[in-house]
Design a protein around this nucleic acid. Structure first.
Lengths: 130, 130
DNA sequence: CCTTGACCTTCCAGTCGCTGGAACCCATCT
DNA sequence: AGATGGGTTCCAGCGACTGGAAGGTCAAGG
């Protein structure tokens, strides 16, 4: 199957699929005319990547996951460890964003938002307490 | 004040401060020896930037905020609009991360995590339901 | 046979917000 | 004079793509 089909069936842009080949994630064979030719297994790998990336795994984590995926002797504990470590990262990001959100909400609620030039948001960004 | 002091007092790395100059955010005058010389106002601007960036405003949003900050005739409603738009973005990111977190937690809880090679996490990433 | 249009190929540059490093200048202390 | 610790410039690289130019390939239509 050519890259256009692989793109449609995996949901990944063709550019991204080429990029994944370049960095050694999924390397298809080529037809005589030079076109990439994706096997069913390679399409599976692309779909796998699309899902793992959408869950926020980095490319290097995806590479690990892919190799565990194709390693028949892997221990599921390895995979679980990777996923758990990733949850910890996600939790940290959520907490950070929630703190940011709270700070912003406080700023906005302090701001009358009219046509007068004095603005507590700018005042606070400029100097007093963070 | 030289860049080292400005860095210590603003909390921004010197490299970052030089970068901000390069992109036209804060452009200090120079001493005879070529060293950057930050005024009190420029230090304020750097602190302002440090805070706004830590709240997740993009560089371009910071540029807007800085210009509102130095615009005596601005309406605080303009600032408020920017902050509110930013909250909407932050909320969207939080929601996305929470969805990701839930999906990961579900995967992890389905995985026995032992030394056997079958692993529901990989199975699910590979193909069935997302 | 020629053209059109949709594909495919490669390669290079740009995104965002820094960050690291090389190579060099300047200031101060011993 | 030399060591240390500033400062300066410029170039390259991060992650994970994305856009665009320039050109090869393929199937269908006039």
């Amino acid at each position: 199957m050519n890259i256009g089909q692989a793109s449609r069936r995996s949901g990944l842009p063709a550019k991204t699929i080429r990029y994944y080949e370049e960095i050694g994630l999924v390397q298809p064979s080529r037809l005589e005319n030079g076109y990439r030719d994706y096997s069913a297994g390679e399409l599976d790998a692309l779909r796998f990547l699309a899902r793992a990336r959408s869950l926020g795994f980095s490319i290097e984590e995806c590479r690990r996951l892919l190799s565990l995926y194709s390693d028949k002797s892997r221990a599921s504990a390895d995979v679980r460890r990777l996923a758990e470590a990733h949850i910890v990262e996600v939790d940290a990001k959520i907490a950070e964003l929630q703190a940011i959100r709270a700070a912003l909400a406080r700023l906005v609620s302090a701001c009358h938002g009219d046509h007068a030039p004095d603005c507590p948001i700018l005042d606070e960004l400029a100097g007093s307490a963070a």
